[in-house]
Design a protein around this nucleic acid. Structure first.
Length: 626
RNA sequence: GCCAGCGUAGCUCAGUGGUAGAGCAACUGAUUCGUAAUCAGUAGGUCGUCGGUUCAAUCCCGACCGCUGGCUCCA
């Protein structure tokens, strides 16, 4: 799963919207779970992962049975296991209330006590279709018609019969460690145009302890929620009167962004990137030519100035292209790498907004690489190298890598020709393999304009969010005539690679906060050192200490409030300030400061110069700890 | 956008068809303190907004705004 020396992790194939499974604690040989296959045969499952999946799936059936008994008017959708539980979709005229969920939970436990068997049956397709049609289970009929062969399996538990591949546990008495969590609307078969069903989510594990552990972790996750940390640490705010999905960065948050930008700016300059700046709005002429009005208009904010239509930029690419196009470029000039911390605005549906993870205005650490086809592979590799440095520097060791390719069945949906796509995919794939990353190939997941590599990071609740992205673009160079002069002195279309490493600063900061539970690495901490005089009598020497720290570029603050030291330390701890320096009688006499670290507590006194040396080293090295 | 839940002081949360409370934070004063909360006092809310029902609405109903968990979509 994890390649030696790298840190790639692929999550289970059916991700839950909630958290990952709690693992560990499984010591017995074999799972001890006997499952029943469609042909009636039984077998003990050895692997815990498989056992728990069956357990969850059977719990989903149990829930469907409970629902069908309590609410006979409810019809069945699908009910799979997820990475930490299960869900089942129901079609019902009135929504499930929280009271309904409680009743369903109770009913399930009652049915467990009845120890009802899961009985497999092999039916003819015709019989199954008739059976479900008679029961009014039209969704099941649709599924069977589409998915089943001539013979198919169904399972009966109580009065519930479900079209299902199995296997299942022997009887409901084997189940019990579960909890129903919430109800959500979910479109039938994931299509927005289909009717919306009601999905009931639950968690299920092999033991009650694991269920509890999961709930505890949910509670823990709430504490590292970036929205809470952002407020508590005074980093950013969102304002109802100003609009949803628009982030206001406070001084401390802005400082964090500044540090991140400084870091990445210098790394990019070292690697031959050049920084540009472009306006935030452009006339519709540009968006029309770029194709954004055809493909992205529903996400754009448009308005009018003196009878001309304008659009706020949803992407930086056309702007960078305008700069590239101001002169003819020889193949000798390439690659040209134009970078910008570019703020873009996109209309996002209100229901998808989420803290700073999904917003309507955000700043990308964007760059566009203009190169020749021959240079593409090296450029992609260079981007991946830099991406790895970024993720490592910020302490991320858990991420997913996807290679999104086009759908070869529907090539007409895409810009660019087959040769372009093949060449680009190969460059991406070769670079991934060179880096030794384990990745998932996502066929048909490419943008219409080109294939891409995405790196996704995981939030506190286990949800994956795209950060780094490397995308080829066959659309813009063509539409906006982006060329270079080849050795044969003819213009050739340039290869354009769009890339972002943080993805967006807003999103990356959210993930960073959740990753560190707010205790940001020293070099990123808005306040690095808090100087605490023991009482007002030592205000003057403490002030001197703070001043000396500031003079050498350390972000130090003095807590000059008339409070007890313990109180100040408590607040500093809650603010996750990396170092606290206590100054009192002893320190003044001995010409030292007493150092306290947020993780290690009191480290004792030492000369200020020694402390400065140590902390500057950590800052310079961008240590992720302390 | 859709489904469900929620919106009371800066924060966390009580509460009621008869115009609202606690803790923390803030402010004032006292205290001058040795590694996660010193004590006392003061002030602070058109109960998200707008409409409706009612003699009377923070509470009941509706719309809108915003937030949360999903779905669809995405950096």
């Amino acid at each position: 799963m994890t390649r030696k020396g790298s840190a790639v992790q692929i999550r289970s194939r059916l991700p839950s919207p909630l958290m990952h499974a709690v693992t560990g604690g499984w010591t017995v040989q074999g799972s001890g779970m006997i499952v029943r296959y469609p042909d009636g045969s039984e077998q003990e499952i050895a692997a815990k992962e498989e056992a728990v999946e069956v357990y969850r799936h059977s719990t989903a059936h149990l829930m469907a049975l409970a629902v069908s008994e309590l609410y006979p008017e409810a019809h069945l959708g699908i009910g799979p296991a997820t990475s930490d539980g299960f869900y089942y979709d129901f079609q019902r005229p009135s929504p499930f209330t929280e009271e309904d969920i409680r009743k369903i939970d109770e009913k399930m436990r009652e049915l467990i006590r009845e120890d009802l068997p899961y009985q497999p049956m092999i039916w003819d397709k015709e019989k199954a279709v008739r059976f479900f049609a008679e029961r009014g289970e039209e969704l099941k009929v649709e599924l069977i018609k589409e998915k089943a062969g001539d013979r198919l399996s169904c399972y009966r538990v109580g009065n519930l019969v479900d079209f299902c591949l199995g296997p299942h546990v022997q009887s409901t008495g084997k189940l019990g460690a579960f909890k129903l969590l919430n109800v959500a609307g979910a479109y039938w078969r994931g299509n927005e145009n289909n009717p919306q069903l009601q999905r009931i989510y639950g968690i299920a594990f092999l033991t009650e302890e694991e269920v509890q552990a999961y709930l505890d972790r949910l509670e823990e996750a709430r504490k590292r929620d970036h929205r809470k940390l952002g407020r508590d640490l005074d980093l950013f705010s969102v304002h109802e009167e100003a609009g949803a999905g628009l982030i206001y960065w406070h001084p401390k948050g802005a400082l964090l962004r500044y540090e991140m930008e400084q870091f990445l700016r210098s790394e990019q300059v070292e690697r031959g990137y050049q920084f540009v700046e472009i306006p935030h709005i452009a006339k519709s002429d540009l968006w029309r030519r770029s194709g954004h009005y055809d493909f992205f208009r529903q996400n754009m904010y448009v308005f009018e100035i003196e009878e001309d239509d304008y659009g706020i930029k949803p992407m930086n690419c056309p702007g960078h292209i305008l700069i590239y196009r101001t002169k003819l470029h020889s193949y000798r000039d390439l690659p040209i790498r134009l970078a910008e911390f570019g703020t873009v605005y996109r209309y996002e549906k209100s229901g998808v907004l989420h803290g700073t993870l999904r917003v309507r205005g955000f700043t990308q650490d964007d760059a566009h690489i203009f190169c020749t086809p021959e240079q593409a592979y090296d450029e992609v590799l260079g981007v991946l190298d830099l991406a790895e440095l970024v993720l490592k520097t910020f302490g991320f060791d858990r991420y997913e890598v996807d290679l999104s390719t086009w759908d070869p069945e529907h090539t007409e949906k895409y810009a660019g020709g087959a040769a372009d796509w093949a060449h680009a995919e190969q460059a991406l794939q070769r670079a991934l393999e060179k880096k030794g990353y384990e990745y998932r190939r996502m066929v048909g997941e490419a943008a219409f304009y080109g294939p891409k590599i995405d790196v996704k990071l995981i939030d506190a609740l286990g949800r994956a969010w795209q950060a780094t992205t490397v995308q080829f673009d066959f659309n813009l160079p063509q539409r906006l005539e982006v060329h270079y002069i080849a050795p044969n002195s003819k213009p050739h279309p340039v290869i354009m690679i769009h890339r972002a490493l943080f993805g967006s600063l807003e999103r990356f900061i959210a993930l960073l906060l959740e990753h560190y539970a707010g205790a940001l690495p020293l070099w990123l901490s808005p306040v690095q050192v808090l100087v605490i005089p023991i009482s007002e009598r030592f205000l003057a020497p403490a002030e001197t200490v703070a001043l000396e720290l500031k003079q050498v570029g350390i972000r130090a603050r003095l807590d000059d409030r008339n409070e007890k030291m313990g109180f100040k330390i408590r607040e500093a701890q809650l603010q996750k300030i990396p170092y606290m320096l206590v100054v009192g009688q002893k320190e003044v006499q001995e010409k030292t400061v007493s150092v306290r670290n947020r993780f290690e507590g009191d480290l004792g006194p030492r000369p200020l110069a020694a402390f400065v040396e140590e902390i500057r080293r950590h800052i310079q090295q961008r240590s992720t700890r302390p």
